[in-house]
Each structure stands twice: as C-alpha cells, then as structure tokens.
Design a protein around this nucleic acid. Structure first.
Lengths: 206, 206, 206, 206
DNA sequence: TATGAATGAGTATTCATTCAT
DNA sequence: GATGAATGAATACTCATTCAT
C-alpha cells in the first residue's frame, strides 16, 4: 500500500528532524511524488502524525490483549508486555508514538490519543496489580511504578539508534532485569547482571 | 533581573505549548513588552531554549558536585542526586531541559547541550559504580540502569502538573523506592511500599 | 513565461526604487499575485537581482561573441559592442546590471557576477588591443580606457529615462563620437559634433 | 570634531557595505559609542548620508570656483577640475557622493542634492563651452560629453581601492588623456599614451 | 554629553493547504 | 490517481528612532 509508505516515511522524518522541522515537501520529495499526492492518502499533517502514533502503539495493544488470556504469573506477563513495548518504541514509529502530544494536535485528536495512551497505562497497572495479588510482584505504588516504567521505556526513543549497540530485545531484557531486581543488594543474590556493552557512549538525558 | 523573567516565561510557554507552537509574540505579550525587547535580552529563539535548558540543568550539576565530597555510601548519594533531578524536571524548566534536542538547535548549540547532558549521565554512572564497589548497590548494567533512571525521571516533565497530586519530592521518593526495591519479591520484606495516591489519573505513555 | 514577467517587474522596481527599497510585497502587488507565488518562480530576492543582472548582461556577451568573427577593423568592432552596451544599460535591466554588487549578494553569487563582469571587461580590452594593432585605434592605456568607457556607459543607467530626450542608440552614437574624437582639436577637422538636444536638463553627477 | 569622525566612519561603512547594509549599530560600534550618541551629532541616517555627500562634493565645488578666475584656456581649466573630481571620487566620501540618490532620500533632501549635482554638471558644461569658444576644445555635444566624463569619473568609486594600483592623481591624468586624445588616430601623433600598470586586474563593469 | 532600555514598522521566508486540470 | 500553480497566515528577526535618566 502506498499509504503505508507515506506514513512510514513520515515517521522516519519526524523521528529524525522532529514534527515541526519536517515539511510535507520533504516527505513528498523523499517519496518522489508531488505534495498534493500526500493529501490523496492523508487528509492533513496532523493525521499523518496520528497514523504514525497508531502504527507504533498497535503492537503494544496486541501484546496487552494476548497476555490477558495467559496463565502465567503477573510478573511474567508484565515482562512480555514490556518487551513488546521496548520493541515498539525502538521502531520507526517509536518517536512519533512517544512525542505525539496535545501540543501539536487538535483537541479531538488529542483526546483520541489520550484515550489510547490511557488504555496502555491501565493495562500495565492491571498487570502490576495482578502480579502483586498472585505474589509474583512485591507490593508497590502501582501508579508510580507504571509511570517509571513507561518513562524509562519511552525514553528509548530518544537514544536508540538501529544497528548500533544493543538490539531492542536486548535493551528490553536489560530493563526488565533492572526493574525486577532493584538496586538494593538482596541478601542472597541469585543472578548477576550483565555488563554494559558500550560503556563509552553516554547520553542518558537525551 | 528582567532577563530571567524572559527566560522563565519562555520556559513556561515552551512547556505548555511546545517550542514551535510558541512564538516570540506570545512571550512578548505575556511579558507585556514588545517583541524587540526580547531580542534585547536574548539574541534569538534558540538561545532562549538554551537558557531554559541550562536553568533546568544547573541544580542537577550542583547536586552532582556536592555529592562528590560526601562520605555516604553510593546508594545514598545517588538517591540524593535523583531527588534533585526529579525536582529539576518538575520545575518550570524541566520540559525544556528534557526536550532540548539537536532537532531544533544549530550544530554548535546542539553539541554544547550534548556535552552538558553527557556530564550528567556520567555523573550518575559514576555514582552507580561507586555504589556497587562499596556494596550499597548490587552489581548491574551501569549504562542501562542510568538510561532507565534518566528516562523515568525525564518523563516526569511530560505528566507532572504543579499543585496537582504529588509534589516533586514525593514523586522522587516514590521513584527512588521503585528503583531500590525492584519488582521481584524479596525473601524477607522489611519495608512495604506506599499506595498510589491518585489511582484514577493514568497516562503513563504521555 | 510568467517567470520572465516576475523578473522584469522586479527589474523595474529595483531601477526605480532601489534594491533595498523594493519589497517582495511591492513586486507581488504589481504582478497582482501573492508573495509566495514569487517564491514559486525564484528562490529568493538575491536570485531575483541576479536574474535581472544576467538578463541585462546577455546582449552584451552576445555582441562580444558576434564581433569575434567580424573582419572589420578593431575600432568599428568596438563601436558595435559599445552601442549594444549602451542599449543594454538603458534597458529595464540596466540599473540592476550596473549596481549588482557584492554588497547585496552572498559570496558565491558575488563571485559569479564578478566572473561575468570580468569577461565583458576583458572583451573590451581585447578589442582595444586589436584596434591598436591594426592601426584603427591610437595607442592608449588599454585598462584605463576600458574603465573610462565602462564608467561612462554604466552611468547611463543613472540618468536615462525611456521616452525622454535621446534614444539609447542616439546616446550610444554620441558617446562613440566623444570617445573617438577626443576633446583636443585636430589639425584637420572632418566632422563636426552634434549639439545637445536638451541643454536644460543637467545631472551629470547623478 | 567628533561629528566629523561620525561622518567619516559612516562614509567608510557606506562605501564598504552599502547604505542599507550599514546599521547605525555598526557605526556606533566602530566609534565605540552608543547608538543614541550618533543622534546627538546627526538627526538621522539620511542626514548622515547627506553629510557624506557634501563632504565629497565640496572640493569639486571649490575647484570649479577657483577655476572661474583663471586665465588659462578652457581645456586646461577643465582638466584641473576633472583632476579634483577624480580625487574626490576616490576619497572616503566618493562612494556616498556617487550613489546618494533620490531612492534613499526624502523628497526635500533629494532635491537639495539634485541642486548640488546640477551645479557641478553645469560648471563642467560651462568649461566645455568656453573651451570650444576659445578653441582649446573641439566642438562637441556638450551635454553628452559632460555626462560621459561624469560617468567615467564617478565609476572610479566602484573600482578604486586606496593603496592598490594607481593613485587618484594618476588615474585622473590617464582619464584626462583619454578624453583629450580620443581613440581615432591623429595624423600627426605628438604624445604616446602610457601603458596600463596592472593589466591583469579587470573589472570595468563593476 | 551620553546611554540603557524599549518599540513600531517593516521584511524575507516558510508551509500547510487548495483547486483546476 | 496525480500535479502545477497558487495563497493565507504566520513568524523570526532587523533597525531607525525615542526617551528617561
């Protein structure tokens, strides 16, 4: 589908240059079509961002749905979702998914996006609660924990570069370990964490 | 200093509406001055963003410096810095600090900002390493842990609203607990986590 | 071609009001189009000036080329070029051609224009040298003579007004006579100069 | 006088960068004073240009006045004036003198300048007429000859650079020779023209 | 004399969007 | 399906000029 090509190219441009620094001219040129052609597939720039957002979010929603019927303990199911989440954020659509904000969107689209985001957040919180209930997760502030996880994972979109350093699944695993184990030493340590693969590159803030 | 007022108002606008959706006209109107007056204090819009960035970052740098001479174990010193970090991100300048990216900046300014960000990241990594060495932090992937923490904390800028729900220090404490304890239940639990204060609001993604 | 209309109208405005006193709004209004339309045909104001410059220069370059294959003595060929030169300077594009300077142009465009100007200058010097060689022009300081001629002719752009007083070819003839004969009386005068047609108007300096 | 310093610096800036590309800030910075200080000496930018113009023109007016009482033949007196003219055009004020145009000036100032320019032009024409009458200049189109001379001399402002190549008096002499002798060979040549000193540099058009 | 602070009026340029074809 | 041509609206930035001090 050409429509998908439009959306993917848009996502890549948005991720590299930002939403506002990407003109439809840029996208048109990259696709080697004229600007009005884009309007044939998408009604406006805002919708383009929205489509990128949805494309990125979809796999996470699917993972949340899949996990609902699983028999595994909550912590395992949460980890499955987090792994999928990390992969989504590291995809072409990750950046759009993460920065799509009310700031650049009309009220109606903004609330639409908010609904989708809330759905994800609630899904994660539910898994946390279920994990606490079944004993696989220790009691915690569910809301804050969901925020911390989302933040850590979303941030991947800001520093991840495909084909450089770790792959998305590797990052997901590292993060899962961090969130599972915590920093405080346990009386009986059973598993030693892996070392960083590229200790030189450092840009946690960005 | 009027200059500081300019920067603060700019930071608030950037945070609420985004960098590109804020015109210098907006800022001028909010300050009740004419547009050229802004140029009297700041040479251009980019520099305005940069000043906001620096204003937000400064307290974190200070905290990192202060902690260097502390005699406490690494984990405590790290927590001190993280608390300051959370407070900075929740300030007026937090959003600017977090989204100031190469995308909207000239190459020279971009690299300047990168340098400052790397400094923070390295500071956190150092504390992690020292904590591991002195036994207050369990062995972990230092780089990934720093990334996860920075991400979780940076993300606060996307959902925090002053005078609503938790205060910045409360959030900081909650996050510190999460990172310290981890999700996996410990054999002997000594400290039970607090419950979420506002279980209704949910927007982890944004 | 609409593009040509844009350039011609621009040239007229530049000539009447000066480059800096002409806004793209003025040009757009005169063409009865919107400002962005101009940008559809020309990438920026500087390029607009450049196009006017080239439009004015082209006939002179052509004349220089044509004259290369002529069998006439140097002085005749020079006169042919000077006549064409005068006509170009008196055209809509004359003023642009003459004032297009490094001052208002980017370095690259500036050097481009300089190249073209040097080409004209060298062409005139060559004709002077050839005239001296074939005896049709008396020995002289070739460089200074070329400068004097170029100056006298360029200056036409400052005082010439179409449909007032002499036509461009008449002016060209008058100048050719002046340069040919010189002021010092010749022993045997063969040709008496014409009188000025409008002795009242006087603005040699401007 | 500080006022003179202001005018001279302004003239240099105008000459190097153009009237419109010179801001009062530039001039103030070069003089190491604040912008309002300039307004203490000169009421506005236009007046600044006017003062430069007058400063450049004055020596020519003086020369014309001096020559009125001379007993020399017209051609000699004309040459004296032309030499002074060339020197003025090559001065700091030359460029301003030559480009000061109605385009950048208010109507009243514009007409004032025009009056001064006409005075010069009429002075030259008068000398030409007197030279013809006393036989030192051969009959010619006085108006066109004055225009040609003014153009050739004015143009010096566009290519002359102090301390490079010929001095102003040398240029004046070369031009006088050119205008006196003309290109057409004379039956009996009495004086051979000098050669160009820098035959490589070529920029007659500019 | 001199200036720090301020501004009104511009001005080039960009860009999402439209429409006739 | 696709595009050439056009535009309304916005926006960063500049600069001559003023005025209270």
């Amino acid at each position: 589908m050409k429509r998908d090509a439009v959306i993917q190219v848009a996502a890549q441009f948005f991720a590299h240059h930002g939403y506002h620094n990407t003109s439809l001219d840029d996208i048109a040129k990259a696709l080697d079509v004229s600007k009005p052609t884009i309007y044939y597939y998408v009604p406006n720039k805002e919708q383009l961002l929205f489509e990128c957002f949805v494309a990125g979010l979809e796999p996470i929603r699917t993972a949340l749905r899949d996990v609902k019927v699983s028999k595994e303990p909550g912590r395992e199911r949460l980890n499955t979702v987090l792994r999928q989440y990390a992969q989504a954020v590291a995809s072409d659509y990750g950046w759009c998914m993460v920065i799509a904000e009310h700031q650049d969107l009309s009220p109606s689209m903004s609330s639409h996006i908010r609904t989708l985001k809330v759905e994800i957040d609630q899904g994660i919180r539910r898994l946390l609660r279920e994990g606490v209930k079944d004993g696989s997760i220790q009691p915690c502030d569910v809301k804050m924990t969901a925020f911390a996880m989302a933040g850590a994972l979303n941030w991947i979109a800001h520093w991840y570069r495909a084909n450089q350093g770790m792959t998305a699944p590797q990052i997901a695993d590292a993060f899962v370990t961090i969130f599972e184990e915590g920093l405080r030493p346990r009386a009986a340590r059973r598993k030693s964490a892996t070392r960083s693969t590229r200790p030189d590159s450092s840009k946690g803030l960005s």
